Amino acid sequence: MEDNYNDIHANILAHLPEKSLLRFRNVSKQWCHMISSAYFSHASFVKTTYIPLPFATRNAGSNRRVAETNRNYYIYNPTTNQYATIPKPGYRTPNTIFGVILAFDSLKSSHHKVVFVRSATTFSHLYQLEIYSSQTRLWSFSSEVQEFNYSKGAYCSGFIHWMTNSGASLRFDVDRERFQEIALPNGWNQHARIRYFKESGGQLHLIFTNGRHSTRQFDVYEMEKDSSRWSVKYRVDLDALISEYPEMILNNSGPSDWDYHAYRVLAVVSKENEGSFMVLHIPGKAISYNFKHQTSTLLHDFAPGCTHIEGCITIETDDSFPYFGSLAIV
């Protein structure tokens, strides 16, 4: 009878936001034990698959990327205010890291992996992956991998994806430790500019532009569920938005300038039942743009009266991350 009672309470509590759960831990020892269990650390937030554990790094005495012996890496959960230091793998020669990715899916496991991309040897262009597992608390090492731009990667549904200008994206199966190239969408060329490349809600999205016209009209691509190819998810036309916010037009730009329109794509949010949208940062403002209705909503005015990108608060795409709470234990 007591087990049924606890199951009923657990099912009810699982539908509450994480801030309420943190307060309810103080109700009794029984509730504290129940809410602190593994069930609530990942299963309670089944309605979202956003990565809730961000990185933090700190250098001790140096800001140079080559001085990795003085760099500490942390996993931090802002909901519970808990953090854990990633143990160092030991001294490596060379010691240059080109990219670090957190691989974590709260719906599949309460454990996470951290993938480091570093130089394999001092005088070659080969790289090597070092993978830390929170489950085993051990490091593993991949075989040498090809030269690539590993500085900007995105984790989604068990794979880490990296972009390239060679006409393909590169994916890495974290569990099987295998690489595979995925063809980029039609229209991609070596001059394309990546406007957005991130995971959101368990979906990986890509936006790129090829010139002045394509900064007004462009497609939002989504990676297929099996991570095999890109497909067009949304079509965007910003003409009405630019008319509403003429400060998006850069007066000093020429017709061939690929930054002719001033905006940054901060997030793409797919909500089939509630309406999908993207969040844009334009000069001085953050706005949401509804894909279906092609309408916009002002989210925040950072600099009232600002009409030019220069002098306004500018948030770059790489500076923004989705945040959804979790009780995941670090």
Rank of each mutant, 00 (worst) to 15 (best):
L299M: 05
E130N: 14
A168H: 07
M1K: 15
A43V: 11
L170N: 05
M163E: 09
N290I: 01
A240M: 10
F324T: 04
S143N: 15
V66L: 05
V220C: 02
A286P: 03
Q180D: 04
N165L: 04
N77A: 04
G305R: 07
T297R: 07
E147W: 11
R64Y: 14
F98S: 13
K19E: 07
S253K: 15
P246G: 08
G284R: 00
F179I: 08
D259E: 15
A120N: 04
I313F: 08
Y245P: 02
S37R: 05
Y91G: 12
P304D: 01
L204W: 01
K233P: 00
T307Y: 02
R235G: 00
Q30V: 14
H112F: 15
N70K: 05
S320D: 00
I329W: 15
E130T: 14
S119I: 04
W162M: 09
L298Q: 08
K88L: 12
A14G: 11
H15L: 13
Y83V: 09
Y83D: 12
S326C: 14
T48I: 01
L206H: 03
N81Q: 14
I313C: 05
I8H: 04
D257G: 02
K292E: 06
K19W: 02
E177R: 10
S142E: 09
S288E: 00
A56G: 11
Y289H: 07
E272G: 03
S41P: 04
T314Q: 11
I329V: 15
I287L: 08
F197I: 06
H33M: 06
F98T: 10
P52N: 07
G305P: 05
N210R: 06
G275C: 01
L102W: 10
F321G: 08
T80V: 07
S157E: 09
F302R: 00
M1Y: 13
R235C: 01
D105W: 06
R25E: 02
T307S: 04
G211L: 11
T49Y: 04
C306N: 08
T136I: 12
T297K: 07
N26T: 07
E18L: 12
H191T: 15
V232Y: 03
S37G: 12
S20D: 08
T136P: 14
E2C: 08
Q135V: 15
W139D: 03
A168Y: 05
Q180M: 05
V145Q: 13
G305D: 04
G99A: 10
G211M: 12
H191C: 13
T93A: 09
G187R: 02
K233W: 02
M34Y: 00
P78I: 03
W258H: 10
H191S: 14
I86Q: 03
D318M: 13
W139V: 04
E177G: 06
K29M: 06
Q180R: 07
Y245C: 03
Y196V: 06
L238S: 00
S134K: 08
S151L: 11
Y83I: 12
V269S: 00
H33A: 12
L13K: 01
F141T: 15
S231Y: 13
F116V: 09
N77F: 04
N273C: 07
V66C: 10
P87D: 09
Y76Q: 01
F321P: 08
Y289W: 07
L184W: 10
F208Q: 03
R71E: 09
R58I: 07
T93Y: 13
F45H: 09
A286S: 07
R71K: 15
V100Y: 09
E68H: 02
G284S: 02
Y91N: 13
P304A: 01
R92D: 03
V220P: 01
S288I: 00
E310D: 14
